[in-house]
Simulated scan of single mutants.
Amino acid sequence: MNIRGIRQELISLLLEMGRESHPNEFVGVLKERNGILNEIDLLPGTVGRENSASLFYDMMPLDTHVAGSAHSHPNGVIQPSLADVNFFPRTGRYHIIIGYPYGKDNWKCFTADGEPCSLDVIS
Score class of each variant (00 low, 15 high):
2 N>L: 10
113 D>C: 01
8 Q>A: 15
118 S>G: 07
97 I>Q: 02
80 P>L: 08
101 P>T: 03
77 V>I: 14
83 A>R: 15
63 D>E: 11
105 D>C: 01
75 N>R: 11
66 V>G: 10
10 L>H: 08
42 L>P: 05
103 G>D: 14
1 M>I: 03
58 D>F: 13
77 V>A: 06
92 G>A: 01
19 R>V: 10
24 N>K: 15
15 L>G: 01
12 S>C: 11
10 L>A: 14
123 S>M: 09
51 N>W: 06
63 D>Y: 02
72 S>R: 10
80 P>W: 11
74 P>H: 08
112 A>D: 10
106 N>E: 04
70 A>R: 09
89 P>S: 07
23 P>K: 06
95 H>P: 02
75 N>Q: 06
63 D>I: 09
114 G>N: 03
104 K>E: 15
111 T>Y: 04
63 D>Q: 05
8 Q>Y: 12
62 L>E: 11
103 G>Q: 13
27 V>Q: 01
64 T>P: 15
75 N>Y: 06
1 M>S: 10
57 Y>Q: 12
91 T>Y: 13
111 T>C: 02
36 I>D: 05
93 R>K: 13
7 R>C: 03
95 H>K: 05
52 S>V: 02
31 K>W: 01
72 S>P: 07
1 M>L: 08
40 I>A: 04
3 I>L: 13
4 R>P: 02
123 S>T: 11
45 G>E: 11
84 D>Q: 07
16 E>I: 04
41 D>S: 13
101 P>S: 02
99 G>C: 00
79 Q>F: 11
37 L>P: 00
63 D>M: 03
79 Q>I: 12
118 S>K: 09
30 L>A: 09
122 I>H: 05
43 L>T: 13
32 E>L: 00
10 L>I: 08
21 S>H: 13
80 P>M: 09
19 R>P: 01
95 H>C: 06
115 E>R: 15
74 P>R: 13
50 E>L: 06
21 S>C: 04
47 V>W: 10
